[in-house]
Design a protein around this nucleic acid. Sequence first.
DNA 1: AGCACGCCGACT
DNA 2: GTCGGCGTGCTC
Length: 691
Amino acid sequence: MTESVQPSLLSGFDLSTPLPGIPNMASELPVARVVIDSAVPHLDRPFDYLVPTELDAMAQPGVRVKVRFGGQELAGFLTERLEHSEPGLKLQPLRSVISPEIVLSAPVLAVARAVAERYAGGVWDVLRSAVPARMARMETQKATDSDGALEKGSVEAVDDVPLARPAPVPEDALLAEYHGGADYARLLRNGESPRAVLSAVPNRPGDWPALLLQAAEQALASGRGVLIVVPDARDLARLTSTLDERLGPEAYARLTAEDGATPRYRNFLRVARGQSQLVVGTRNAAFAPVKDLGLVIIWDDADNSHAEPRAPYHHAREVLLLRCGIENAGMLLVAPGRSAEAQRLVRSGWAHELGADRSLLRANAPRVIAASDEFEAERDPLLHAARLPAAAWREAKAALAHGPVLVQVARTGFMPALRCERCRTPARCTTCNGPLALGDARGAPACGWCGLVAHDWNCVECGFMRLRASSIGADRTAEELGRAFPNIKVVAATGAKPLHTVPDTPALVVATPGAEPVAANGYAAVLLLDGDRMLSREGLRTGEEVLNRWMGAAHLARGRDATAERPGGGTVVVAGDPTEPMRALVRFDAAAYAQTELDERRDLGLPPAVRLAMVRGPAAAADKFMDALDLGGEVRRHGPVLEGEGEHRWLLFFSYAEGPAVTAALRAMRATFSAAKEPIVAIRIDPDGIL
DNA sequence: AGCACGCCGACT
DNA sequence: GTCGGCGTGCTC
């Protein structure tokens, strides 16, 4: 706030012989350790400053500060107050404390550091995700100000609520339906921190939001905080509507970028001030400064919305894993399917599997039909155009008498790579050599790897300028289906045009994976049309991804048996050639499939049975970087692979045990190269979709 | 990205 | 002897 700098202070002070007191500086703990806002790798460490007397009171660990660094003024977080610094340093004074609000708690800083270590990235990059942008007005605003509804839950309102209410033992009936679920609930209530993985049985009362809430309530009953992370706005809306109904909107704080900077910071402040013990949100909420954290829950960790698209590309599941280690909290991974990573946690004994009886699953899961060999589809031009097998058409037709029908189609990103219309040479990106695909609704071809839009593409082989566009997106499928089902309402929901819910009336709902709207009483039928297309994509994890997307959609279907609200029961039709993922869907057993996949990866030495790092950069720099790395003999190196314009890509495979040493070595080497002004190499840890 | 410091050449 | 060229490396 107050500008503290006086000319005489700018020269700095030598604190090697500390005290007795420096004029105008705090007499107790005069040194402030600060994490500065710098993207430069070799500056990714704390720096010490002196605290001027007038900033003494506000300069608490966790506040935002401004400091002079080199020539410039930088933002930073004050992390510690110390009696003295390293000998021989000339300390500058702190320029200002931006606000007295403690926005970076000690545990969250520790988590951010662990995340930066794990991903060989900068602490500041992690903090950028962890602490939302400051909105100054939110810090001073009173509960009586303006828009009333939004202001509930501010300091005054919460202080009025008596905290010591007789706490009833929370419900755990839904959790107890799983083997070990009742024990898991009891441990949480008793203040312990159990860890579990659970594949949800569909069509139970309240569905997964009710299940997550029950788990949360166990930990809340022990007086501890709870954090729930979901992939996207749709799932958050579903969860918060359950929380609103059962606990009321004051009982939790929601943290998501989608709300906009101001509400997000308002809710963040409630959490930071300890006014909210239950936090729900999307991936960055994994860093929410929940006090006395007892349990972290992640819903659908296989959804790649959980992966941060900016450096250091951390995944919410991994953030939470590190976090529950640091804060000694329990963890619960709940999903409609099973990621190989979650299965690994079960297999290694780190987490318990809370399994369900086959009978419970059979009674609640939809009927699954594999429509594998379909000659009829070829004969009927309407069905062929909509690439609808006859069995799917029949099921949909019957189901439409009872309710809405979901049609899952592949995202355009899943389409086979585009080719030259004349010579059929695959179209590749001119900069990174990645496959081109139709990126947006207007059909501009874009690179599937780097996203670069190829405006003036021409074939490298024959020079032809037109691409073969075989892609059919959700919108076109919707049109085709409209013709195949006259008089039925058709709606399309894609990532670009999201739709969270649909009414419980007959309609065809065409959606891409992850964007499926929720039907109030479930879908009468779910058609999974593009399995072959999705499975044809190159990639180590394609089968697992496709199965998890199918399971996600299948969870939106009614149970097989008809009920009063759900006449006709629910059916899932999966079209395509018989494959392992399809068989796993028919058995409704994603865990077994994930285990098979994991075993196979272990035999092959591939992720996630092992960890992976990628180093990419200008050929000479990348090679030099790899050459300078000193890694243990157990680390497998693979490369260089030529990529794009004179770029080399290297891969490193290493065990989880070696992980910390490898990422530390990569981080240290990057700092060395950065200081030596070597060309920048990109480092990605456990990247998805490159194998 | 700025800014100090340093080693060397040109000029008072 | 002193001023200032910009090249190298550090920044609390």
